[in-house]
Design a protein around this nucleic acid. Structure first.
Lengths: 231, 231
DNA sequence: AAACAATGGATTGTCGACATTCCACAGTCG
DNA sequence: CGACTGTGGAATGTCGACAATCCATTGTTT
């Protein structure tokens, strides 16, 4: 039986997948977050603990904790003794979200240039975007775009910046899911990425910062008004 | 009885002060936060729910929620089924905290200049700092410094930036409480503020950005190594 | 003696029940 | 009619008890 290796060979048998036992609050939070980010739970929707608990067949405790997690994500707000609801999105918040994102991405670019970090990996994502645009695969295009920017922030080698950016990007996910996405414009904007990589690789600070700044602003200007909720 | 005014006159009677009934979790969170920010609860200290519940004479539920609030503040971390503890501070985290703060303050300065926002209010805090320095009142000096920067961010008129800055400043509080503060240097640094206000008032963009950037970096360079925890 | 299994303590995770608070709606008094 | 009062429902807030998990330590087997 002790055939050859002393270490356990990774059992790649697909049958018995790695059984994951996450706390209920995490499972609940993940589900609710996905629902919010996909737009299925629209801003303003009330979240009632007892109802959710019954629907998901768990007690209220994990529901409460899950909702608090989403509150930390900035996706839900609580009004004491009254109720919790998906945080409404005002036009102002949307604008602020994008402007803060711009600041984060500019900061990342600055750090990449200061440290002369290699940026080859960004080309991979650029190519993925091109391929997605060719294949008319809109979802893949959006995914590659996020991967590009995520990598950009990661290259800045700044954990706190990365965490802040991720948190902010949650809301960007939500915004993108809610508005009528104009596929043509987005496809245009996709073409902005390669020049950014070029400027970074060439160490052209001013140009890189200007490009990333304008790129982020372009993303913000799709339709900043189609989100506002009244109820 | 209906003496003169139709509206209820504000009963300034000091006897019956506005009784405030905050949720227990908030009271608990406030207390714990104060303890952490003041350095009484040092990084690495374990937080045991049952112990805290008994000490504070409440059940575990509000304790759990309070700790989760502190987790959102970035002051506490949880290891599932094992324990919760005050988040240890690494030298890297301290450096990242200050560099992100710099980015926030620079962003605020940029916005203030773009909108030509009047900055008179900042002079008030500058004067308060001078007075505190004269009177050798260290606590007041620190307080006025925070008030200055808080006002600076507020003038940027960007709610999301303000919220992010406040959250970040929590950790700066903690850091300042933990390290051996060098009063002389801080008093020197205090003198940096008036030129910033001047540059802002004069609309000198480059100068203002450079000044606020250098000022923030100076704050970071007190003693970036006296914090690290091992336990 | 070394490796493995089991047991116990400590801590968090989850549950169901009860308490508190707020709001809206009715009811009453002027 | 208008304003105040009270009552009910609905939601969150809090509680105490039990379950699940991890880790260290002990015991056992080879």
């Amino acid at each position: 039986m002790s055939d050859a290796n002393s270490m356990l060979a990774p059992p790649v048998t697909p049958d018995i997948a790695p059984i994951q036992n996450l706390p209920l609050r995490v499972q609940v939070a993940d589900r609710l977050r996905a629902a919010i980010l996909s737009g299925r739970l629209r801003p303003g929707t009330g979240l009632v603990e007892t109802a959710l608990a019954e629907q998901m067949n768990v007690s209220r405790a994990p529901i409460r904790e899950a909702i608090q997690i989403l509150e930390n994500d900035g996706l839900v707000e609580t009004i004491a003794y009254k109720g919790k609801r998906v945080k409404p999105l005002t036009a102002r918040e949307v604008a602020e979200t994008y402007s803060l994102r711009e600041a984060f991405e500019v900061m990342a670019v600055r750090r990449i240039l200061e440290h002369r970090t290699p940026v080859d990996i960004l080309n991979v994502h650029c190519e993925a975007m091109m391929a997605a645009a060719e294949a008319d695969d809109f979802e893949a295009l959006v995914g590659a775009d996020e991967a590009f920017h995520h990598s950009l922030i990661e290259l800045a080698d700044h954990d706190l910046l990365l965490a802040s950016w991720k948190n902010l990007y949650l809301r960007i996910h939500q915004i993108m899911a809610l508005r009528n996405r104009d596929e043509r414009n987005l496809r245009e904007v996709a073409g902005n990425h390669p020049p950014i990589v070029e400027a970074l690789a060439a160490g052209q600070a001013e140009r890189a910062i200007t490009l990333i700044s304008e790129h982020t602003r372009a993303l913000a200007e799709f339709d900043p008004a189609s989100i506002v909720e009244t109820s």
